[in-house]
Structures are given as C-alpha cells and as structure tokens.
Computed example of a mutant assay.
Amino acid sequence: MEANNELLAAFATLYESAKYSDLIVQCGDRSFPVHKAVVCSRSHFFDGACSHPWKENITGIIDLSEDDHEAVEHMIHYFYYLDYLQQPKSAPVSRRHSIQKRRPSDLVLVQEDPLLAQAQAQAISSPDSSAPASPLSPSPHYRTDYFPDTKAPPTPDLDQTFDESLLDSYESDCDDDECDAFLQPPNLVVHAKVYAIAEKYGITGLKDLARHKFSIQAEHHWATLEFADSIPEVYETTVDSDRGLRDIVIQSFREHPQLARSKDMELVVRDTPGLAWELFRMGWGLPVC
C-alpha cells in the first residue's frame, strides 16, 4: 500500500508541476498540460488521438472546448488523482458542507487502473507474508449495493426549506459514511456531467466513480432542487441504452412517490420525454428498460 501511495503522490506532483508534460488539453480559455503516458492509459479517446497521425497528435493540442468546462477539469483531475471533487487540505471544514477526502485505499474501482496494475502485481508477489493479498481491494466501506433495501433518512420536500432539527436527529443515528453523504453539498449535476464525459471519452473508471457518487448523493438528496436539476443532464447527455444513472433516477421515484407531488419535479418530467415515458411504463408495471 505504501508503494501505491507513493505512485499516486508522484502522479499528483506531475499534475501540479506540469513537468515533462507532452500534450495540451485546451478547453475554452483554459489549458491543461498533461502527460500522454498518464491520459492515454486511462482513456480510449486519448489513446487513439495520440496513436494516429491526426491533427491532435501532430500539434500536441487536443481541443475540448465544445465540452462542459467543469467536467473537463474534473476529468483531468481524475487522470492524476483517481478522484474528483476533493476538498483542499487547507480548506476549513464546515459542519454542514464537510467533504471527506478519499484515501487512495478507498478509491472506487482503483484496481482497474492500468497504471496501478503493475504495482498491485508486485505487491501480491512480494515475499513478505504479512502483506495483504490484494492491497488495492476496495475499502470495506465501499458501497456496491446501489439500491439498498434500507431507506434513506427522511429529507424535506422539494418545496420546503432545510430543517435544522432534521440534521441534528440524523447525525445522532447515522454512521460516519452515511453522515458524510448527508452533510455533503449536493453535486448531482456535476456527477451527471462527469459521467457523460467519461462515457464520451471511454474512461471506464471515471464513469463508475461518477455513478457511485451520484447514487450515494441521490439517496440522501433526492428531495432537493439539485436532484431535479440533474435529471435533464442524466437523460440528455447519454444514449437511451445507457442505464447507469437512469436506473438510479427511476429507483428514486419508486422509493419516494411523493416526488410526483412536487411542482418542480412536474416541470422536469414535462420537459424530459425520456423520463416521462419511463415513469409511464413504471406506473403500469411494465419494464422500464
């Protein structure tokens, strides 16, 4: 695990210093100096762009200005940290908006990263019998059940303001992971955008991570305007057959039928034909996908 942490720290140093960078990702007025060895190993798109005699490979510049600028920045950050939306170390921690920075051992699906595969194999074959069999296994706190049987804590209706007493009562009952998810400011729109850009550029690990983050926050923030705002992103930025985030949205409607009484949600459903059709089928007991 120490070797893996050292490798991730090295990636972070490369990102922050831009030393030895050999490729520029352009997005509007932002330029991101990156390293082909890092980005091409994690994205089918970047691998293809740098492996053929295309304009991008000749100029050393890949222009992504047509993509969402925030999503591009999170994608670049993921290439080097295997995470995004981390809280800076120097940032003050707010009781209501605390964001726990993920340790390398807690990264979702980190074992799938090709650049870390060698480190994993070396650690497994180490003669040290005290070393764990799989140092890159996900943390035991990693949630693989996207739709648990247990209900999320009660949350105020979409058209109501946040109730301070609700936070106090919930904090006394929840475990650390659940409290972290409940206290985090909702970033469902961001997660939907990151999911879409990960699909577009063939970044499997980032797509899985964005889905995981979206699922956890949807459990705890389904009754917020952020959840309503994220639905058009979910249904309009990926193809209909991509059920990654759509299934989470539909499951939220199954678990919380009171969403149908929200005026804000009514507007979203009217403006999102894909969601309206799936809710219609769900109401008649027909398969959604």
Rank of each mutant, 00 (worst) to 15 (best):
T13F: 07
Y15N: 12
E16M: 10
E16L: 05
S17W: 11
A18P: 00
A18V: 06
Y20T: 15
S21F: 09
L23V: 13
V25Q: 10
V25M: 13
Q26P: 03
C27G: 06
G28C: 13
D29E: 14
R30W: 14
S31K: 10
F32H: 11
P33N: 12
P33E: 08
P33A: 10
H35D: 15
K36H: 11
A37K: 07
A37R: 04
V38G: 11
V39E: 06
S41P: 00
S41D: 00
S41N: 09
S43V: 12
H44P: 01
H44F: 12
F45D: 04
F46M: 15
A49R: 07
S51Q: 15
H52M: 09
P53S: 15
P53A: 15
W54M: 14
W54A: 11
K55L: 10
N57E: 08
I58T: 15
T59C: 10
T59G: 09
T59D: 11
T59H: 08
I61T: 08
I62W: 07
I62F: 03
D63W: 14
D63N: 13
D63H: 07
D63E: 04
L64C: 09
S65T: 15
E66G: 10
D68V: 14
D68F: 11
D68I: 09
H69Q: 11
H69W: 13
H69F: 14
E73F: 13
E73V: 11
H74S: 05
I76E: 07
H77W: 03
H77I: 06
F79E: 04
F79K: 01
Y80I: 01
L82I: 09
L82F: 15
D83Q: 09
Y84I: 03
Y84D: 02
Y84T: 01
Y84F: 06
Y84N: 05
L85S: 01
L85Y: 04
L85V: 01
Q86A: 02
Q87L: 08
Q87I: 04
S90Q: 09
S90L: 12
A91F: 03
A91M: 10
P92N: 08
V93T: 08
S94F: 06
R96F: 08
R96S: 05
H97T: 12
S98Y: 03
Q100V: 03
R102G: 02
R103H: 07
P104H: 00
S105Q: 01
L107T: 01
V108Y: 03
V108I: 13
L109K: 05
V110C: 05
E112C: 04
D113L: 02
P114Y: 02
L115G: 00
L115S: 03
L116M: 09
L116H: 04
A117N: 01
A117G: 05
Q118W: 04
Q120N: 03
A121Q: 12
Q122G: 01
A123V: 00
I124A: 09
I124T: 12
I124L: 00
S125F: 07
S126I: 08
S126R: 09
S126P: 07
